[in-house]
Amino acid sequence: MRKIGKGLIFIGCMVLILFLSGCSRKEEKVLNVLNWSSYIPDSVIRDFEKETGIQVNYSTYSSNEECLAKVSSAKEGTYDLIFPSDYMIEIMISRGMLEKLDTTQLSNVGNLDSLYLHQSFDSQNQYSLPFVMASTVIAVNRDHIKDDIDSYQDLLNNDYVNNITLIDDQRIIIGMALLANGYDMNTVNEKELEVAKDWLLQLKPNIKAFDSDSPKNFLITEEADIAVLWNAEAALAYQENKNIEFIYPKEGSALSMDNFAIPKGARHMNEAYQFIDYILRADVMKEIIESYPYKNVNQATQALLDPDYLYNIASNIPSDIIEDGVYVKNIGESVKLYDKLWAEIK
């Protein structure tokens, strides 16, 4: 019987030890990164850890809204480095959620192509620096789909029942419907949104799934033959199946520029700078771009990239596409119109 008393003491000690070991782990150098899923290869993070001795805790999100929600619902200082897109940078700046960047701490900041600096959402790059750029694109598996496709309207074809995968992002997909109907992608006009809704409901029978994290898998496993997805995902699908064709629709594409940003009150600011500077290195960015071929914004890296990347329109987005493309903009409270519309479509 005495054993049980001893057992209790033993268990108590175990609990204590576990809690203490949990606490002591905090003493190490850590960096809490919150990033898009499928954006930075594991190997880059591991190499960074080896080089600097900093432990990286990596969490992911699959939309800008999720990033905002995670940062604002967590206690201030939980995350040290985030990668929001253009309009989300604007929102976060307006809400005082970002730290001003001290570029003197970044020895590799000169590697960035000035073409991509000073964007309207942060004209002085006080709070953000560009990481990569992305564009939506239509990818088609030519093994199964022979029709000409050059417009979003072509997706309404009755032959494509249950055969299209879309990005699971309300601003992008509703934006696509608006573009398809000749409206501004950032409209807050309820009538135009109503038209977009009807268009999407018409498209719905053709939709196989909404997925933002890895729509390429739908193309690779031939689960769907058509996808509206981010350019790098299309390029990755192409690596597995050379019969995948990329189409930038004539109505224009949605653009997105993703940026480094440090949330207010970040507790590992130095580590965050170290990480940004590490990624800005030409060779490191090359490794990232090769794993996830988005549009590179790093001049030093551009010289290192091979033709496979440079001549693939899905990875190295042509400049006329960028000119015709549209960024998602901050529309303030009207976002609730989009929220509701999204629930109606799903």
Partner: peptide, 17 residues
């Protein structure tokens, strides 16, 4: 496939997206 929404998804979306 993210096409169908039940209460759980709706609540999750309100909190996380």
């Amino acid at each position: 496939g993210g096409k169908i929404m039940i209460l759980g998804n709706l609540i999750k979306n309100q909190f996380l997206t």
